[in-house]
Amino acid sequence: MTIELQRDLSAVMAQQLQIRNHSLTTDVGEAEGGADTGPSPHDLYDAALGACKALTVMWYARKKGIPVEDIHTHIERDDSQERSGVYKLVARLQVKGDLTDAQLQELHAVAQKCPVHKLMTTVTTEITTDLERLP
């Protein structure tokens, strides 16, 4: 899969992000020289974790017949030590439904194993960057 970004010429630094048929703007805040026209790359990274946890819990609950009616996910970031190699995220999931304590514990275990959580904590990511001139 390819994700494409192209500068949004209506803003100083913003990028138009295209994923399949989905489009959104990403930018940085005014303090970083942007116009805050969309979420920052860090916001998208953090949101990927929250989305993955929520979708994984919903998928699992439906597969197992666990009566989850709604789910709200909150991600809190502490990037105060990022430059020294520590980036902290706290995920808080609030689940609505007629659930037993055992089902809540089961869903908690599933949330801990979502694919993005695994990517962020156990997988070595290799990145190659090429830079070319535009014609």
Results as ranks from 00 to 15, higher is better:
residue 50 G to I: 05
residue 76 E to P: 01
residue 104 L to E: 12
residue 61 A to I: 04
residue 129 T to Q: 09
residue 26 T to L: 10
residue 129 T to A: 13
residue 27 D to M: 04
residue 112 Q to Y: 03
residue 44 L to T: 14
residue 41 P to Y: 11
residue 83 R to H: 11
residue 5 L to S: 11
residue 84 S to E: 10
residue 14 A to M: 06
residue 51 A to V: 05
residue 12 V to R: 08
residue 117 H to I: 02
residue 8 D to F: 06
residue 56 T to W: 03
residue 111 A to V: 07
residue 121 T to M: 07
residue 91 A to H: 01
residue 72 H to Q: 14
residue 99 L to M: 12
residue 26 T to W: 00
residue 73 T to W: 05
residue 135 P to Y: 11
residue 50 G to D: 04
residue 102 A to M: 08
residue 22 H to F: 07
residue 112 Q to I: 01
residue 106 E to V: 14
residue 83 R to F: 10
residue 96 K to H: 08
residue 57 V to I: 15
residue 97 G to L: 08
residue 45 Y to W: 08
residue 7 R to P: 03
residue 28 V to C: 09
residue 8 D to G: 00
residue 85 G to S: 07
residue 34 G to C: 10
residue 75 I to Q: 02
residue 12 V to Y: 06
residue 44 L to N: 14
residue 124 T to F: 05
residue 33 G to D: 06
residue 10 S to F: 02
residue 99 L to T: 14
residue 77 R to K: 12
residue 113 K to D: 09
residue 74 H to G: 02
residue 65 G to I: 06
residue 115 P to T: 02
residue 130 D to Y: 12
residue 101 D to G: 11
residue 86 V to Q: 09
residue 93 L to Y: 02
residue 42 H to A: 14
residue 104 L to S: 12
residue 46 D to E: 10
residue 23 S to A: 13
residue 14 A to V: 12
residue 74 H to K: 13
residue 107 L to E: 03
residue 68 V to A: 05
residue 36 D to Y: 03
residue 97 G to Q: 06
residue 103 Q to I: 10
residue 119 L to E: 10
residue 63 K to A: 14
residue 35 A to K: 04
residue 116 V to H: 00
residue 77 R to W: 07
residue 70 D to F: 03
residue 51 A to E: 05
residue 61 A to K: 04
